[in-house]
Amino acid sequence: MVVPLSRMCEGEMGKIRKLELPPLTRERLCGLGFVSGEEIQLVKVAPFGDPKVFRIKGTDITLREDISMWILVETSSVPLSYATNGEYFVSIINGGMGFRERLRMVGIEVGKKITVTGNIGKRIEINANGILSALSRGQAMRIIVRER
């Protein structure tokens, strides 16, 4: 799946596909290693939601949304909130102990298989090993899943 870099979630990895940016910005980013095929990870989001820190070639680079939305990455993992119906593996959960614990209660844990049974409106319905649950969009944003 190809998404803008800005749509990735904390911890998510992807491969750069294309930089749809003006030449000068592109050249500066090239010097920092932003070339197609390169692995990139969203490491951290700033206190106010933007900018974000990306790790590329072992260094942390800060970009704002106005640039990162024009960098396209190929990623096999998506935030659960964007997942269509089907089977997925949970790869990352962004949240504190409480959040993780609540998810564990409904069978959602890192490495476990889950099935999205409905993704309409404000709720995402999940079947995790027989346990049915519904998550809000905000909660689902914090769970990164990988397609099978």
């Binding site: 910005t25 500066r28 980013l29 920092l32 900018p51 820190v53 260094t59 942390d60 680079i61 800060t62 970009l63 704002r64 106005d66 640039i67």
Partner: peptide, 10 residues
């Protein structure tokens, strides 16, 4: 107009 930011965290 806003500005851009490309900054390394060493």
């Amino acid at each position: 107009e806003p500005s851009t930011l490309i900054m390394e965290l060493p």
